[in-house]
Simulated scan of single mutants.
Amino acid sequence: MDAYKLMTIAAIGFFVFALDKNQKKFPAPIILIAAGMFLAVFPYFSSMELTKEFIFHWILPALLFTSAYQFPQDQLKRKAAIIVTLGTVCIAITAVMLGFALYAAGQLLVGVSLAGAMLISSLLIPTDPVTVVSILTQGNDKHHLAETIEGESLLNDGTSVVIFSLFSGYYFGSQSLHIGTFILDFFYTALGGAIVGLLISWFVAKGIHKITFHVYQVWLTILLAYGSFYIGEALGVSGVIATVVSGLLLAKELTNKEEEEEKELRRDLKNFWGIMEPFLLSIVFVFIGIESIDFIQMDGLLFVIIGFLLSVIVRGIVLLATIKSVKPWRKSYTNGDITLVTWGGIKGTMSLALLLSITGQSGGSDDGLLSWAFMMIMLSLIVQSLTFYPLKEKLGD
């Protein structure tokens, strides 16, 4: 990748995040996507390509590790049940329900097959909490929603990869769609990834205390973030879950230590990963803007709009049924909270990475379907990001 182009994108990201600290009316991802679309006009930038390998191998491990490491440990303990439920069972149910809903609508409008509808569904279930968490944490009484949405996103990334693998195999004809296969694949990849993350983070947690120089300690966490991901993928389990588990367990290990040296290490880690997150996000969202020029088309636009609406409606139905069925959750989350969690399920980095992983897999015969999926993701990013803060204000801060 051209270093000059990358530095230009990084500079754009710096100015956007530095000048738009609150990210309320104009969230940073939207500005960065718009900047990418502007850059795509120039041949110098339009030739840049965002690949699955770039996102999966360089971007995702760092973003996943940062989110996991920074997630509040006390909230993880308190909300473990709802976070696990929303990030696993609810995502699986949403994927199936949305797939059938997209099939019903798509058959009438564009003739999409059931397999194609399920594939699109698997691309629409991952969520990106960046904008939502930034807005919710600025208030005084919505932190519990920010933590729920962020915790759900941590788990549903891993769940989404498993569901996508199953549905894409069904679409491309490499495997049949059976509930037994899904359950077996999910437990194998999820539990395998968790075990990998657990083992590697245990060794790193022990080793990090043997090092006294903080620079090398931070360096070791970089190896942990990327190493757990690569090892998990090499073993055929979820590298996503391995990275998330490693981040959570390292945070737990360091949080339990109250010595002054440990506090300094936590501060250094917070500073380093706090810089890496907006830097990497700026690259991703500018690239999304550049790539959008190749995916946007007018054919099937009505299906795209309906598909986007269905993704929100189905998510809302599943969330409402789940939360209302459990008494403690019913008391903790108002209807307004459920509405915000529903609308906060914005699509982003993971959805795009999964989509790019199958681009061109069938020699271009799936361009229409992938374009529809891409535009649904873009609609979610733009519409939900821009309207989330006004919705939060309307429902009461």
Rank of each mutant, 00 (worst) to 15 (best):
L379K: 08
L395Q: 08
A194I: 03
G197T: 05
D337T: 09
V84G: 06
H209D: 13
Q217A: 03
S153V: 05
L319D: 07
L370D: 01
F56W: 12
G116E: 05
A11W: 00
L265V: 09
W219A: 14
K25V: 14
W58G: 03
F213K: 13
L98N: 03
L136V: 13
T339S: 14
V383S: 06
Y226D: 05
W273M: 06
K142Q: 12
G368F: 13
M1I: 07
F287L: 05
I288M: 10
L355H: 00
N140K: 15
I30G: 10
A10H: 00
K21E: 00
F14I: 01
L386Y: 07
I305D: 02
M7H: 07
V314G: 02
K25H: 10
K206P: 00
I317A: 15
R330D: 14
A11K: 03
A95T: 02
S365D: 09
L32P: 00
G13A: 02
I313C: 12
A35N: 11
K252A: 13
T349P: 07
G193L: 00
Y216A: 08
F295C: 06
V112L: 05
K270H: 15
T221F: 08
L370A: 02
Q384V: 05
Y170V: 03
L370Y: 09
A373Y: 08
I195M: 12
M97V: 08
F26K: 03
I382F: 09
G151V: 13
N156S: 13
V41Q: 08
P126C: 10
V326G: 03
L109Y: 00
V245G: 02
S121W: 09
L386E: 01
L319Y: 00
Q70S: 15
C90V: 03
Q138P: 11
L155W: 11
G207T: 02
I231A: 10
Q23G: 03
F182P: 10
I313P: 10
G207F: 02
V341Y: 01
E150S: 15
G289E: 04
V237M: 09
V204T: 02
I313F: 12
S160E: 09
G207Q: 10
A34M: 12
M97N: 01
D337C: 07
A101Y: 01
I163C: 13
M1V: 02
A353T: 04
R78K: 14
A62N: 13
L356V: 01
I31N: 07
G192F: 11
W202A: 12
T159E: 09
S246H: 00
K263Y: 03
V196A: 07
K77W: 05
A81L: 10
